[in-house]
Structures are given as C-alpha cells and as structure tokens.
Design a protein around this nucleic acid. Sequence first.
RNA 1: GGCCCGUUCGUCUAGUGGUUAGGACUCCAGGUUUUCAUCCUGGCAACAGGAGUUCGAUUCUCCUACGGGCUACCA
Length: 465
Amino acid sequence: MKPRVRFAPSPTGQLHLGGARTALSNYLFTKNQGGKFLVRIEDTDLKRSKKEYTDQICQSLDWLGLKWDEELVYQSSNTSVYKSYIDALLKSNKAYMCFASKKELDEIRKKSNSFHYPGIWRNRDLGEIKSEIKKGSPFTVRLKTPKNGKTSFKDLIYGNISVDNNEIDDFIISRSDGSPVYNFTNVIDDNSMKITHVIRGEDHVSNTPKQILIYNALGFEVPTFAHLPMILGEDKKRLSKRHGAAGVNEYESMGYQPDALLNYLALLGWNPGTAEEIFDLDSLVKNFDISKVQKKSATYDQKKFNWISSQHLMKEDSDIVLKRLASINPEWGESKRQDYLIKLIDLMKPRSNSLTDLIDKSQYFFSSPKEFDSTQLQKIWKKDTVEKIIELKSVLDSINSWVAIELESNFKRFTDQRGIGIGKVMQPMRFIICGSLQGPSLFDLMELIGKEESLKRINFAINEF
RNA sequence: GGCCCGUUCGUCUAGUGGUUAGGACUCCAGGUUUUCAUCCUGGCAACAGGAGUUCGAUUCUCCUACGGGCUACCA
C-alpha cells in the first residue's frame, strides 16, 4: 500500500526551520514510495491561530517546492466530527465526564505531590453525574485509560518504545468549553485522512502512547510512527525565534534558494550513506531512507549551510538565478539588459553564497565604485602608477574589439614591452574598476562594463588618486 | 519529582568485538589563479565517565553524569 502522510502545522506562527524539516521528511518519505503528501492546519487553539500564519506557512511550503496532493484540511471545520466521537466514547463508557475544577485539581496536585489526575470522577455513580449536569456544572471529558499493561509502538527511527499504562493518567480529551484537545483531534483526523505514517518531531514521542490509547478506544487502526530528532540552535537550545532567522520566509528574503535550504535540512540528522552532499529535491526523494535518520538532535550550523548554498548557486543556471534575484529584489538590474545580467551572474555566482550576497558584491557592474578603501589604495598605488595607467589608457583607447582576449593580449604586450610585472598594472586597474582588490577576471569585467565605462573609471582615477 | 529518549573531532556525520577511528563544513599552511572565488595538497581536531562481559571494547550490558522531550482544560 502506498503511504499517505501529512504535515500538520498549527498556524500560531510562521513556518520555521523545524517545521520545514518535518514537512520535508514527510515529503521525502512518501514520494520515495510514490505516496501522497497532505497538509492539515491544526487550528483548534482559536486564541492563537491566525489566518495570516496559515497563508504564510502555505506560501513557504510552496516556495520550498513541497506540493501537497489534496486539499488543505482545517481542523476548525471538523468540530462536529470530533464532538460525535467524544459522545460515542462517552456512551460506550470509554470516557467519562469530570466535574473537577482546575483549581480543585491544582490543590490535589500540590498535596499529593503527583502530577497525575487522581481519577476522582472515574467511577462516580450515575445519579451524581446527572445532578451535576442538571446544575449545568462545567465538565471536561477524560479518557478512561487502562490501569495495567503497557502501551508500546515501533518507531521507524527510535525503535521500540514502551510505557507502563499506569504512567498515563486519565487525560482530558474535551475541554470544559466543549472543544477537543490536540491529542484527540490528531487521532480523529489522521484516521479520517487515512494517514499511514505519522512523521513528526521528537517532542511528540511522549504523546504517542496516549494517542494509541485513543486509537484503541475508538477501534481505529494505529498508523506507523516516526519521530524526528530536534534541530538545535548554535547555543544548543531548541531552535526558535531567538536564533535569528528561524522563519523559512526569512531565508527566502535573505537570498537563499529553496533547494539549498532543503538540502541542508535533509542533511541535518540524515545522510545517504555515501559521501555525496549536494542534492536537489528530486535526488533527495530518490535517496531518502528514514531508517538512516539519526536519533540525536542536530545543531544548526550557518557556515555549513552557507557552503551548501554556495554549491547550489554555483551549479544553478544563470537565467534561473536571474529570476530569483528579480523575485527578491525587483529593482535589481533594471538599468541593464538581460544578456548583460546573465553574464554578470555567470561571473558572480561562483563567488557568492546567496542571492543577496551576489547583489551586494555586484555594485560595480552598475555604477562606478563610490568608495575606495584608502589603506588598500596606498598599498597598490605607487608613485609611478599614474604614468603607467595613463600609458595603458592610451593603449586601451586604441582597441577596437573590446573583448576579454583582446584586452588580455594588450595588457600582456604592454607589460612585456616595458619589462614590468603584470601585477603592477593589474592590481591598480582592478582597484580602479571595482573599488576593491578582489573579484572576477579583470578582462571579463572590463569587457562586460564596456569600453566607455572602463575608460571613464580610469580617467576618474587618474585625476583623483 | 516521575516517565521516555539521546551522547564519535567546534559542527554535520561514517564505522567496527581487533581500523593509523574515515569523510564533509569551519580554521590553519602550501600550490594553482593578475586578485578573489573555485580547484588541488597537507595539517589541527572526537569515541562523556566508571564498572562489567571478553584474549581484546568506541562497538555488548549496567551504573553515573550531562543534554533533550513529555508530565497543561497548548499544539
């Protein structure tokens, strides 16, 4: 049977790295076997859930290229379904009403020094319950959990996990306002969506036995579980907003490409068993094996991610890079023609680790350098530099075919004739053109910006330096 | 407090009852390049600790420490 999996975010914030990794793992697992990937919005917490977050999460999934196969499921539109299952459980005596107030329970907890619900309404007689109902007292619904035995499951990543049933108290499945809780809605929806594999974060391991008890009470078939280790920030704490850019949309605006993020996320806690490290989404799908996922949590490392990102950028077609640049910064490159921009990208993409990095490093393709570092200038601008540059300028002036090879041969001839090292003029010339001492081949650069602009910058330098 | 889970270079990881414990990123040193980046070569750097099993444990078992998760009328 082909798997059906779901990613089930709660719309209480933007899609963050941990969520993206969970979504990705689900996607890879199911697509590797030709299965379906679904998305369910867990918006039962009415106070914290926001439509804008739902939109943002979907937008981020879309950007990442993780397409879901069926319509979005909203838990908020299933309330009557949940209610009917609660009623059924009540009727079959597998759950019961609890009229204890929160305050009352807190006091008991304090006294008994136990965190477990003491079961005070588990076996009340019918009359007592009826009279509370008549009074209209608020109540919660609790699952009548077994007192003996163990609840076990085989996790695809963690292996066998087993908990004594007496560790699980009669937990609430429906609040006093009638709304069902997460553990309950999760089970109902996973069942009705015919989910075969529940793949989620490790923080849900302890919820799983409780959910299995619900599956059992309802007579549902229990799916297979897989729990992914957590992603930690560089301070070893669970990744969160405090760690800077935790939101996927922020990675987008920082100029990272979706495949790069996906690639890095996949490698956090997983490896294909080979030395290969650079993958696009398709090759991740082909290679993914959930049994190779690590049990321990992994720490996010910006440097490694930058490396992955630069590898992707280097390999990416320049016209795709151009499209991405336009999407994060529509004004960029407006003054130039497309073929100019493509050549610029050809030159700069191997030297950048993100799109914004590329933008930042490419100022001098559009306008003369505005600032010249004076210490660098001193280093390369010697007393006799000006006259050399003036001479060279006249050589360049006479070039008709302004292409890199021509420029190079003219430079060479010039320095050979004068018996000087080529660096003597290359360095100052680069500085004149770029305002810095690093960058792509000077000849390519000069070819691209053109004769007129090159000479303009040279003239400026002759007068100013 | 209780329960569950985890622990190999700084980070991501490979690995096996006997290995010089391998790779990648970072960092450092060379080489290539007019410069930068790329690329190439080399280097630094790890089996949490303690018992036990064994001829031999990083690998198996137990304990301790440390880290994480859950223990909500959050998800």
